[in-house]
Amino acid sequence: MRVLLVTFVMLAASLGWTGSAQAAPKVQTKTIAFGKLKPQRMDMYAAPSAKKKRPAILLIHGGYWWGGDKGHWKAIARDLAGRGYLVFATNYRLSQQAVWPAQSDDVGAAVTYLHKNAKKLGVNQRRIIAMGTSAGGQLASILAVRGTGSSRVRAVVALSPVNSPLEGYEAGGRDGADTYTRKLRQAVVKLLGCAPVFQDPDCWPLLTDATPEEHVTQGDAPALIIHSAKEFVGVEQSTTLRSEMRAAGVPVTLRRLPGALHGGEILKNKKNYTQVLKWIAKWAK
């Protein structure tokens, strides 16, 4: 219990919260296998509740698709669980283990697992929300526009999502590109297993498949998309996706924040975190 309270205090401090840590709920955790492969694992966070079914939040980590881990969500996952959600932080196959669409297949399989085991887990199948950062934000966006049936989510939050891998690839090759942008260019090549040069007959279909705006249809999941003005994954990554979703009648909010916070860093700002919580609560009702 002492470790939990310390974790809560650290999270509260990082988000600018005040108040007694004695209010921290007891959150239980366990790791679940949703597939046979080693990366196909997710951590479940749950606080005691009398409710038989609760909204679920699937957290998808970033890391250029070649790094990162579900453990990076630990503090946020505990806080969300303390607010009454069932929280699942998932891993997926990284690009050095398998190229696209393995990553999309894995997060889709995680959602399918939640649907098929909803009764056992206490999940409200109609209230599964995905939230991802950076590369994980792109995967959350893919869930929004491609999820159907047992892989469907109710809504998504995408923080600094790489929603246009082509833009990421091209930006990294421009004069003056910074280290992060050049690294993103390399990450796109590793993700696809090829360089997305114009109309490459082998690579272009993979690029199209990994681009959320290419899959928008009426009835897709609503999305909250957030970028910072000066970060390396700029708002231009998501403007076409917003246009396509609006044209299809899908609720979408695209926010451009001041500063250069990227991915999960956005949630360290109390105002930003509060806005995200309100969006989640709206679609979790």
Rank of each mutant, 00 (worst) to 15 (best):
T7C: 05
M10R: 14
S14G: 03
S14P: 00
W17F: 10
T18Q: 13
S20Q: 07
A21G: 14
Q28L: 03
Q28I: 01
G35A: 08
L37R: 03
R41W: 05
M42F: 14
A50P: 03
I60M: 07
Y64D: 01
D69R: 06
I76V: 14
A77T: 08
A81K: 02
R83N: 11
G84Q: 09
Y85H: 12
T90M: 04
N91L: 01
R93L: 04
Q97H: 00
S104D: 14
D105V: 11
D106F: 09
T112I: 03
A118N: 05
N124G: 01
I128S: 05
I129V: 15
T133E: 15
T133A: 15
A140S: 07
S141H: 00
G149Q: 06
G149E: 05
S151H: 12
R152T: 06
S160M: 05
N163F: 04
P165H: 00
P165Q: 00
G168H: 04
G168Q: 05
E170H: 02
R174C: 03
G176R: 02
A177Q: 11
T179Q: 14
Y180D: 15
R182M: 14
K190C: 01
P201N: 13
W204Q: 11
T208F: 04
T211N: 09
P212A: 07
E213G: 03
E214S: 13
G219E: 13
E231Y: 03
E231L: 04
T239V: 15
R242I: 02
E244A: 13
L257V: 03
A260S: 15
G263D: 12
G264Q: 11
G264P: 08
L267R: 05
N272P: 01
N272K: 01
N272I: 00
T274D: 14
I280W: 05
A281T: 13
